[in-house]
Design a protein around this nucleic acid. Sequence first.
DNA 1: GATTAGCACTCAACAATCAAGAGTGCTAAC
DNA 2: GTTAGCACTCTTGATTGTTGAGTGCTAATC
Lengths: 348, 348
Amino acid sequence: MEINERKLKILQAIISDFISTAEPVGSRTLSKNYDLGVSAATIRNEMADLEDMGYLTHPHTSAGRVPSGKAYRLYVNEIMKKQELSQREKNAISKRLQANITELDKTIEHAAKILSEITNLTSFAMAPRPDEEILKFIKILPVDDYTVVIMIVSESGKVTNTTLRLRVPYEEESLTILSKSMTYSYKGKTLSQALTVDIIQSFETDIEAMSVLARDIMPNFMKTLEDMLNVNLYFDGLTNIFSIPEYNDIDRAKMFMEMINKKEDFTKTLISRDDGLLITIGEENPDVSMKDYSLITATYHIDGQLVGKLGVVGPTRMKYGEITSVIEYLTDNISQAFQVTGGKNDDE
Amino acid sequence: MEINERKLKILQAIISDFISTAEPVGSRTLSKNYDLGVSAATIRNEMADLEDMGYLTHPHTSAGRVPSGKAYRLYVNEIMKKQELSQREKNAISKRLQANITELDKTIEHAAKILSEITNLTSFAMAPRPDEEILKFIKILPVDDYTVVIMIVSESGKVTNTTLRLRVPYEEESLTILSKSMTYSYKGKTLSQALTVDIIQSFETDIEAMSVLARDIMPNFMKTLEDMLNVNLYFDGLTNIFSIPEYNDIDRAKMFMEMINKKEDFTKTLISRDDGLLITIGEENPDVSMKDYSLITATYHIDGQLVGKLGVVGPTRMKYGEITSVIEYLTDNISQAFQVTGGKNDDE
DNA sequence: GATTAGCACTCAACAATCAAGAGTGCTAAC
DNA sequence: GTTAGCACTCTTGATTGTTGAGTGCTAATC
């Protein structure tokens, strides 16, 4: 069966009604509230067709219709108009975002906050993957007789550190030597390259004398490197879901919270997503545990290179048009703010 | 009215029954399941007395009794026996904790995890307040033409840093001078002292030449100091509450989540609590928004000085004895592990 | 041939009713 | 002082009936 103009119009009406009410929508409601130019009976026939085609489902015999994932996909691809934000909305968002542009992590955290407040959904922001960060220097700082701080600094200014207790006291001089030696070995390498360096190989030759110290420090140095590789992920609006009818059930709310709380899994999901604006609806999500949710993400760029993500997660019933616009506007703003070409060159 | 031996026994039975079932307990249940040596009718009379005295409440006429906050307080103070953990339990906990003793923050985060898993409640761990951290040095690191990293290191090895974009390019030499000059001004001061230093005063005299640079950097330096003062707070077992009958209601679950999500408020609440083991039950909590919860916290010490907190939050109905023991055992273990006298001196 | 009015049918949701059961509080007997 | 007995209360769960929204089909209409 072909989907004709009228079916499309009806489907659109159903979707937009359902998105705002969360209630199954019936033929009479449609003919009353939407100017479709046909009677409820006709709509009924069309709805039956749409159901056959997989765009609608039926919670039970005498209930109205509910859009399926396929319907939302069609809606997003074909029907939904890009809902350009008004200048006022844009200004409001820009203003809020700019008020807090300092560090990247703070900024994206703040962007997530703005996003969740506008959409009333749960939002998230992921910092760029630092694989390609280039190591600048490594410093082992003395703290007390048994304690040192391992500090790693990258070219882009990322700093990670670990406090470490040693099994034996150390001499301050050894630390200096070790710091220099490690910097020499690792400087210029990317994080992912650094992780593959064979430590034993590269050290045992020249610093045998302090091998005990090195043996204490190196495994922790590697751990610190791994720490540095961790992607920061921020959530906001977690409690928003309690106001959404879909989660007005303790079990679903629980499932949602559990999904969100598995940060590692969620990070992986985000990393594996394509760049640019991406909407995945219900069963389209590769992860089965997400088959009842929709995910919208967009990417921001730092100097056209490093890529982070920003988005929302919620029930498949969401205002795709509106939300998409807001997310894109936010990511554009972030990308612009963190262009390395440096600050104040509006247009051009 | 006096609370006599028998009333106490009955109250204890009611509390212990209610703690495990979460259902109001009636006189017949008590006389059947607990060896009280009197009939249900007598128990009824005693229960009526206990209710008059404020230890019990009544959800409705024909329901059993529920312990009040006052009852739990009596229970905690007088009835509850310190439930010493078995050696096996102790070993299990120690083993899990020790498997992950590296950095303090990681360790307490891990302790919170253990705690929530054992208690099936929501747990939290707060790092020590760093007010008394003594500044060791300050370094401004170059990143690119417009970007620098402000790094502050304390005597105890805490490192905090901020990446900062300047409005004008800088000369690397200026950074070195500024770093040294700032270190000179701040070294040896505690964080709280550092915050009160009059910046303008202390600099404008000798480094006029680079005042532009300093003016960009100083406000951000102060922000970084404030960052450093922030207390880290970790939660674990957030979704545990969904399995607790008290929160089997979307509104209560929501309230709980909202309370927990206000990290600043919660941190303040924790900071203002007395040191040592502290149990606050329902209305005993100074914050009215917590009047339906109980909070158990204990403190751990770093070198007998810096103090952090570990604890659980949940409904007033909780296994005070058991939980208390676990928390105390965990905090003792942490304190021991982070004694500055250094590692491996078991007993003595 | 497409559209629509009409009608029988379905089913969730809600309210009303009822019985069962748990529990209390009081009284009178032990 | 303790306890048995009993009337009374109130929740809980099952049952039933009613209402209303909605469907799907058929026959009339355009």
